[in-house]
Nucleic acid binder design. Structure first.
Lengths: 197, 197
DNA sequence: GTCTATAGACGGATAGAC
DNA sequence: GTCTATCCGTCTATAGAC
């Protein structure tokens, strides 16, 4: 089906452009040019810009679920699985250095604009949160698993933001190592260690 | 001088709107309407949109320097001064919950768009970084003061992003407490304590 | 008369929607 | 392909201070 594959290509290009430029800064013309179709043809598949946004978000939710399932299967221990999550910062570092974290930037933009779909975009965070929560539970931290999940989410978000803004890729790589250490051994680099109390 | 005060009012409104809506999504018409002047009058004070962006960034740099000087004087210990920084998350929580961190969102937007002024916007981060670095040095951590400064910056950025996206103000307040604890006592909530090794 | 602050119309470009 | 709205930026016109 040509129609279906055209629709798929539209979503793919829109997904990429929304990540790279932000939702408001991505125009129909940009997407149409990326897919190499006319704008008229475009409206045959999507009536409004918001409709594309919703489709892109649902697509991201789906691919994220698949990704989490994959990590669930490949990681042998809970700690190893959590490290799979942490390491996407390194895996996607080229784009993250340029455009930040795709989850954080979209959720941030839509929340700030008070957009109707902001909660759906934030559901991407919840997906990671719940998955991480389960991993921490299996790590023997059932009591504060959700707190730990939120801490790691925030940590990785901050690292992506700062590494991108200050163009410091070494910082990103160093922090990924620290996060993995934190998960595995619990060792922490604290400003004023207990031994100094 | 009426002219000067009009210019000042333009910068103030532009500063607020750029924070609340983002740079690209803030139009001259919006700013002019906020100041209650005509668009023609506007161009008498600022020739281009980038010119007003630069002015807003320089203004933020200046007010940030003053803020840091204030904390330098009011905080009695290095740890107390660092906590002044951490607590702006709570002080400005209403706006942060709606629009995120003003430093991170602007630097992120400009970096992503490859804007000419992105480095100037990121200089705001550097201002905090260098100030925090000095505080950690005074805390007796001269060796890794800059690393600690970056860690705390990233931490606070991540908390702002996540609290805003998930509309979780309790998380923001809880993390602020944890950050202050971290600075003061070095105690950490780790997923797998050393004692389990 | 000159300078400055203000206002408002105009144009080219581009946006989303049909 | 067309339509309308809005964007940025430039233009000219007016009002008052000196």
């Amino acid at each position: 089906m040509t129609g279906n594959s055209t629709r798929e290509r539209i979503i793919e290009v829109a997904d990429r452009l929304i990540y790279e430029r932000g939702y408001e800064h991505t125009s129909f013309a940009d997407i149409a040019a990326g897919v190499k179709i006319s704008r008229g043809n475009f409206y045959h598949h999507f009536k409004t810009k918001d409709e594309i946004l919703d489709t892109v978000i649902e697509r991201r939710l789906m691919t994220t679920r698949h990704l989490l399932d994959e990590w669930e299967m490949t990681g042998e221990t809970p700690a190893a699985r959590i490290c799979c999550f942490v390491r996407i910062l390194v895996t996607n570092r080229t784009k993250i250095m340029q455009f930040g974290c795709p989850v954080g930037t979209l959720a941030g933009e839509l929340t700030r604009l008070g957009h109707r779909s902001s909660t759906r975009a934030s559901a991407l965070f919840s997906l990671f949160r719940e998955w991480l929560c389960r991993q921490f539970e299996q790590l023997g931290r059932a009591e504060d698993a959700d707190e730990l999940a939120m801490e790691l989410l925030a940590w990785s978000q901050g690292v992506a933001t700062l590494a991108s803004a200050l163009r410091d890729e070494a910082f990103l790589e160093r922090e990924v190592e620290r996060m993995c250490e934190w998960v595995k051994t619990g060792k922490e680099n604290v400003p004023c260690g207990k031994e100094l109390d």
